[in-house]
Nucleic acid binder design. Structure first.
Lengths: 235, 235
DNA sequence: CGATGGATTGAACACTCTCAATACTGGTGG
DNA sequence: CCACCAGTATTGAGAGTGTTCAATCCATCG
């Protein structure tokens, strides 16, 4: 997942400044800045579809603000949400002629769309970019595998704990601080392979156990991250 | 697995100075032939570990024969099997300093191991290879997402149907022909997020419904692929 | 305000799990 | 060749977790 984030944010304790700057590798996002002139800013309202499964993959998107859900709809109405994409996250970078998934705005969303052609040109022009892209894809695959474990092995309580912890990690929110739940309970349920009622009940249980405080529907405070991690035993 | 992706973006990049005729795109496997001189053939017995989570990623493997399970073990003994790798499949190509997963021999297995360094050199030397690698990674990600849907939305009957169909597709086995189940029931259970008993019972149900014939434990005949596909409703 | 959509809670039910007993299989040794 | 053994698969019965259906609550917004 995004352990690089927490590492990057780590402040130096003591006076020891790193003497020689090692060549900090540029992130994929850094490279994408080169695409700035081709990028178009777009805005979507709550619930709007950004693109649908089967649409041609003409654009690569970067989320600027808001939350996007990446999902798939079955013919009978069942829905699975693969992940939630948040500011800084990239969407649609898969090597795939048609979009294999649907992207919908969970909240009001702003994003930048880069034409696939210019994205490809950037990748073609620089080995470094391709390497970064490979790393990015690898990281995505690891994240998804992590989630497979959640769905394959964990019960409701563990799933909710895993979900909240990952969200806290991504948003760099520690214990005692409010964590924004931009998505609704139904979204969480469809991401965890549960029903909305089970998600509600499970959150209620964790609240009764004093592991959580729930000031309001869209905010949660993690009181005991250690206990939550113990629940979400992974690896 | 890698179905329509081969037909994906066929933009040829400048480096390899392709002749007039657009050449048939080489698969990643084709390119790997260049690594032949560095490859070492290895053999593993049933149940042996090929590498474990946390081991340094020093090799990339290609399965020659047999079946390998890619899995993760939790501290409390729970196990999740991400996938089964079969002849022709590549293992360990993720951009990752340490193996994020464990690979174990389900049957007697032979495989070729390529030093990671030579693999990386190959990738560094050719844009085409990197492109193929990106495609391969993308395809893997799509496969995993497909499976996330299975775990997130499907019940036991649907899961088993999905599993059997995918296996039949991979092995190019049609209706009425014997499909080899090289893995045991417990392996299937750990891959589908079920228990071994549920897998057994579900297979029994499908057998009673005449969708399957089960000559013996390690072989299954799909009698009605249409009905199975209807069960495994996806997309 | 009342209306609407989401969230929460309750009760009954169903699916899957757990525990336990039995059957099968391939391999070993008498 | 058969008996035995260990590992695996199958089947059964009961329990439990999560689902379903339904009612109520709550917040936002016109």
């Amino acid at each position: 997942m995004s352990m690089s984030l927490s590492a990057a944010r780590k402040e130096t304790f003591g006076e020891t400044c790193s003497p020689v700057m090692p060549p900090v590798p540029l992130t994929l996002n850094d490279h994408l800045r080169a695409l700035q002139p081709y990028g178009a800013r777009q805005r979507f309202n709550r619930g709007e579809t950004i693109f649908s499964e089967g649409d041609p993959s003409n654009y690569v998107y970067k989320v600027l603000s808001g939350t996007v859900r990446i999902c798939r709809h079955a013919a009978d109405g069942r829905r699975y949400i693969f992940d939630f994409m948040m500011p800084g996250d990239l969407i649609g970078f898969l090597e795939c002629p048609d979009q294999p998934i649907t992207a919908e705005a969970v909240t009001e969303v702003t994003l930048i769309s880069y034409p696939r052609s210019s994205f490809d040109r950037l990748a073609a022009s620089s080995a470094e970019v391709r390497t970064r892209l490979l790393c990015h894809l690898s990281a995505s695959l690891l994240t998804v595998q992590q989630h497979l474990f959640v769905l394959g092995c964990q019960n409701a309580k563990e799933r909710v704990a895993s979900f909240l912890l990952r969200l806290a990690d991504r948003n760099d929110v520690g214990a005692g601080h409010g964590l924004d739940l931009t998505m609704g309970r139904q979204d969480i349920a469809d991401h965890l392979g549960l029903t909305i009622e089970t998600v509600c009940r499970t959150i209620a249980v964790l609240r009764n156990d004093r592991l959580l405080t729930v000031p309001n529907t869209h905010q949660i405070i993690l009181n005991d991250i250690g206990a939550l991690r113990a629940l979400a035993i992974e690896v």
